[in-house]
Amino acid sequence: MAMITHPTKEKNTAFCQIMATGFNRPVMMTGKALTLVVIMILAGIHGCVDIVTDIDFPETEPKIVVHSFISPSDTAVQVMVSWSNPVSLGTSQESIRLIDHATVRIAEKNQPGVVVPYYPEKNVYALSTNLFPITAGNHYTLRVYVDGYESVTGVCYVPFPNNTLQIDRYEVENFDWSELIQLDYSFSDIPGQHENFYAPAAYLDELRYMVEQDTIGTGKRKFQTISGESYISNKGREGRRFVMRAEAYNYRYHWFEGPSEDEIETSNVYLLLLATDEHYYHYHKTLENYFPDNPFAEPVLIYSNIEGGLGVFAGYNRYEIVIDLNTSSP
């Protein structure tokens, strides 16, 4: 069993959660101030008369947690399998417990399916889509067997791509150390027999310092959404055009050594429209609202379509537009 240790695992407070929602500074101050006042009051009341008793917590068995997102555009089907950590064991604060000895099978609906082997270097089960192609309009079943436990299953659907995505406007504002890129983009829902789900996003090429390798690598940084939703359902809005605005800073210098200005300036912007199934949508939507330490909200139960276990098995399809910032003009 492989263990991944988290470099930093801090207990989040409600303040952190409110701040983590991506609000700018005045909002942090608003949220913080309001929360502070209410928490002080509640703490004052409870502080006076608390009587605390230890309660026997029922022992719970760990559950199999499965994560997999499949698409015709991916080179491989990848599946991550891990254990949930029952809180009664008290070890959960430290690590993820990956399962490396499971039998993972993927199948098209009503077909026998194939085994997805384990790749220890990536900590996932993976199978090339050359060997097992994923096609739009199909349902797939994923089953995970672990000795001594009931198998767990998930079913997903791979939708057709939506290629109505277009860039409507982009603007670059220059500052001393960076430039601010602002994008307007949109797409139209293509109504079908069923509800449609989308996950639109914009990304920017970025150079990153890789701690473990001590090198500079490339990565993609997501634009911050200014208006529009990150996960969209067309329910009640069939056929509508969805408009998004997003912005990101493109830094000329990093605080660590590495990238030169020239390299940065060749950056591309990527517009991505994922057409997803309902599981992808519900899972990410509940995660988006997940603030476990917010004392003012009922806890969010994270969506799962893994029968007998936890996690998600979801299908999606991808449409992409690339904009070269150096050759395109705003």
């Binding site: 559950k63 947690v65 994560h67 490339t218 996690g311 979801a314």
Partner: peptide, 30 residues
């Protein structure tokens, strides 16, 4: 009753959406 990893989909399969440290899933969509 239990905890499990906070996993989101990364459509690039590279380093993720800004989580610098999480190199263990490099090249995976997680």
């Amino acid at each position: 009753i239990a905890e499990y990893p906070h996993v989101t989909h990364n459509p690039w399969g590279e380093y993720g959406d800004g989580y610098f440290y999480n190199i263990s899933t490099q090249g995976t969509p997680f």
